[in-house]
Design a protein around this nucleic acid. Structure first.
Lengths: 155, 155
DNA sequence: TTTGAAAATATCGAAAT
DNA sequence: ATTTCGATATTTTCAAA
């Protein structure tokens, strides 16, 4: 990851659909070099993928919430099964496994408040491993789409 | 948003860098039609952008945490200023404004635990509007990259 | 890394279904 | 309204320097 790679990564975060040629021009290298660099970044796992960012309203997901969940026992089996089953639910869009009094933060979406309520009653309340969960409606969510590398640690 | 649009949106979520030609072939329409549909989806704001997904470790962001923050007073001025100042911090990658006992969930990243600690001490502890905040280290974060529309509500 | 050339793709207007 | 066609511009891709 030199300066060139960082610049390429930054541009692809800004607009993943711009042409290799444009990226090459902006960072000041030949298109073929740029192409090869992007390939390597992809292969090394630095670039994990390219994804369109879609308006949740257009996906009929007008309501969002964060569910803070506590489960027991915290064994690998139970934790893994819980995570896997969450991942299968269409309403679940992201899961944070965390340390602290809560074990998970689950970012969920639904058509409206009624669907959110029904979803939580059907998929959360009834779980055997669920100890408690608290639901917080999300008023707004702003996510940074372009992240720069943080400065290296001085030795 | 008909079936065709949904299919295009799904494909662009899976891989935003595939060619218009490939997308057209996969959904079974002419490339020119596909191009026009993608343009309209973009124009209508259904597609908000295309972004490369980058490995946080490669960005020197090996540690993640969620900070649940409570601020007062909850006036528009204070809330807006708080959100704006968070957005400027390189460590902050996403902010949820929520209802409930906490007002914000702030997703932050840092080089390591020491930097996270220093960051929180410098940028959170000292704020005048901050009533309390609790920090939870993130062990894992899984985010769905492809979201389908939720079923329409029956009338 | 770059150059250069061929193959693939994007793009647009016009005509057709 | 969508598609097909044709024509051109642009881009990707790779072999060779």
């Amino acid at each position: 990851m030199d300066e060139l790679d960082s610049a390429i990564v930054r541009l692809l975060q800004e607009d993943a659909r711009q042409s290799n040629r444009d990226i090459a021009r902006k960072v000041g290298i030949a298109p073929s070099t740029c192409l090869e660099r992007i390939r390597l970044l992809r292969k090394r796992g630095v670039i994990r993928g390219y994804h369109a960012d879609i308006d949740l309203n257009a996906l009929n997901r007008g309501v969002q919430a964060i569910v803070a969940a506590q489960i027991r026992p915290l064994t690998r089996d139970v934790v893994d099964a819980f995570e896997r089953s969450l991942a299968q639910l269409p309403e679940v869009i992201s899961v944070f496994t965390i340390a602290g009094s809560d074990d998970f933060l689950v970012h969920v979406t639904a058509q409206d408040i009624d669907h959110l309520h029904a979803f939580l009653l059907e998929r959360f309340t009834s779980r055997r491993e669920m100890v408690t969960f608290r639901t917080s409606i999300i008023y707004q969510h702003h996510s940074k789409q372009v992240l720069d590398p943080l400065p290296e640690v001085r030795h």
